[in-house]
Design a protein around this nucleic acid. Sequence first.
DNA 1: CTTTTAATGATAAATTAATATCAATAACAT
DNA 2: ATGTTATTGATATTAATTTATCATTAAAAG
Lengths: 122, 122
Amino acid sequence: MQRDTAQRRAIRGVFNQENRPLTPQELLEGAQSAVPQMGLATVYRTLKSLTEAGAVMVVDVPGEPQRYELAGKDHHHHFSCKQCGRMFEMDGCPGDLERLVPDGFVMEDHEVFIYGRCRDCR
Amino acid sequence: MQRDTAQRRAIRGVFNQENRPLTPQELLEGAQSAVPQMGLATVYRTLKSLTEAGAVMVVDVPGEPQRYELAGKDHHHHFSCKQCGRMFEMDGCPGDLERLVPDGFVMEDHEVFIYGRCRDCR
DNA sequence: CTTTTAATGATAAATTAATATCAATAACAT
DNA sequence: ATGTTATTGATATTAATTTATCATTAAAAG
């Protein structure tokens, strides 16, 4: 059976506290305030099981390692701070992307990334 | 001095012919129809010098290796075909992305990726 | 045609991210 | 409290991409 460990509680805690897409490294550092000896392998293992269980989603970011965020959110996009490197969620959607699609091409999905300075860094 | 070689002509030829963001592997395969013995190192070396010269730009794609495209084009975004894996350019821009940005955040840049089927694959 | 040396091809090495290994630890059913 | 075994931490390994090495080739200047 699946066991309830301090490490997993810590990782879920970081997701709930930060509420933004996190890298395995960010999760490790965040979880280490609760479980200082935690290793990176545990983060990856926990991410794998949470992803398979449908509790978290992978976010592929251009030019960066994968990030993970809690599943079940409304459709949204992401803001990446050029200064602190953190990624944030933005509600909503540009809409009307269909007009960008060349003739004969079929749109099935889309991603929007905005880059700049976050509230703390500007 | 910089020498004019068959390899460099072949790589520039692939850029001009395809007119879309290409991976080093795609460039290698395309250039090998002109210079069959070309190696991947030559592609990377040529990309580095073309990038430093400002003739090509890096395109970071979510979850994929870097691609390269000719510099100096009008502002545009990219379409990625889920079937053949090729990436295409799309003129234009959604516009009005500012309304997505959270209060206190400053937008400096943006990227839009559309995923689906290209004309050849649908 | 020679000479000089930038460029190439083949391959090793470096990077970075993610997974596998395995002895030690700790959840939890009894 | 005890035994079983899922989980962990440390580290090795794999995988994917990019860069470095170096003997050989060939561009172009004289």
